[in-house]
């Protein structure tokens, strides 16, 4: 059987949890196929070293492709080098992370390889030597089961859905590929980056999301949500409904829903959010949903696992306090 490849993502030179999920999901596929699993990371000097931790998640071979041209944002160069690597090794299946960067990268690689791509899959199985993937369609109102031939089978996996299971291997090979020549069409230049305030972790990758809606009344009240997020720890991020983003209270990067981000955290707080169908489209696959709304008939209670009927301005500070106390004890 041809080998399986997991494409890891480094953030500021560090492996993110999504990369562990991708390698772990790919380990499952490789086991079912009886294949060996490679993991690849691309970046500047030191990338191979940074990726070596993927050995704990089941990679048999870890390849670091290093080039001075692989600076931040150089998706054009990255796509060219990955397509070369994939083409040369004739992988049977390649898994990407369906993060913002992965969604920018994977279609370019697929087109260079002249292969179809399944984006944002939430389940993977191997049947008769082929990959069968499940992915949400129509804003999560249906699930499509898709069979994709190994020519190679390219898929990106949704963050927070596949567990990052530890699976140590006996012998792991670490390979560094230094490359000077970088195949890319040219004409694409990264000029700069402006960080937005407070966005340590993107809402689409966060394990816990604290989302606020119009019921929060105004941007001046967001410190209440910031405090709750801080109490929940480092894996938590802020989210927002579109009403809030349209009003200019929060940036679009935090919008959850049909025309915002799709999130699948372990825990989602909908605070002062009514639960419009377009909002649900972005968060209904969260593992546990908590809502606080003063209207007992708000549609959000229809999907929430736990709800409190009440005023966010009374409930949220109390919740922050209780969680902080729990964490400290």
């Amino acid at each position: 059987m041809n080998d399986v490849l997991a494409v890891a993502e480094l953030k500021n030179g560090v492996l993110g949890s999504v990369s562990k999920e991708v390698v772990s999901a790919a380990r499952g596929v490789a086991d079912a196929l009886g294949s060996s699993l490679h993991a690849v990371a691309t970046g500047q000097l030191g990338t191979a070293n940074a990726a070596s931790g993927l050995a704990f998640f089941g990679a048999d071979r870890i390849v670091g492709i290093e080039s001075d041209d692989l600076g931040p944002g150089r998706v054009d160069v990255r796509a060219g080098l990955l397509a070369d690597h994939i083409g040369r090794h004739r992988y049977g299946a390649v898994l990407f992370a369906a993060t913002a960067r992965g969604k920018d990268l994977a279609p370019r690689v697929a087109a260079k390889l002249e292969s179809p791509l399944l984006s944002d899959v939430t389940a993977l199985e191997v049947d008769s030597g082929e990959i069968v993937a499940t992915r949400p369609v129509f804003a999560g109102k249906a699930l499509a089961r898709v069979r994709i031939p190994m020519a190679p089978a390219l898929v990106s996996v949704r963050p927070n859905v596949f567990p990052g299971l530890e699976a140590s291997r006996d012998a792991v090979v670490l390979e560094t590929v230094r490359t000077e020549t970088t195949p890319c069409p040219g004409g694409y230049r990264v000029k700069g980056f402006e960080a937005s305030e407070g966005a340590a972790i993107d809402v689409s990758e966060a394990a816990v999301v604290v989302s606020g809606g119009r019921g929060m009344k105004g941007p001046e009240n967001w410190h209440l949500l910031g405090a709750l997020r801080d109490a929940l720890g480092e894996a938590a991020a802020l989210g927002a409904s579109r009403a809030v983003v349209d009003a200019g209270w929060r940036p679009h990067s935090e919008q959850v829903g049909q025309t915002g981000k799709t999130v699948t955290p372990k825990l989602y707080f909908a605070l002062g959010i009514s639960g419009a169908i377009q909002h649900l489209a972005g968060m209904r696959t969260s593992e546990v949903i908590v809502s606080v709304n003063r209207d007992a008939d708000a549609p959000i209670f229809g999907v929430a696992d736990y709800g409190i009927v009440g005023d966010v301005f009374e409930v949220v500070p109390e919740l922050t306090k209780a969680i902080r106390e729990l964490r400290e004890s």
Binding site: K11, G73, T99, A100, R101, G186, G187, Y188, R189, V190, K191, G192, F193, E194, A195, S196, A199, A200, D202, E205, H252, S253
Partner: peptide
């Protein structure tokens, strides 16, 4: 010249 929404901020990219 394009402004792109990326993780954690905005990236500026120029294309011919």
């Amino acid at each position: 010249t394009c402004r792109r929404a990326v993780e954690g901020g905005q990236e500026v990219v120029e294309m011919d």
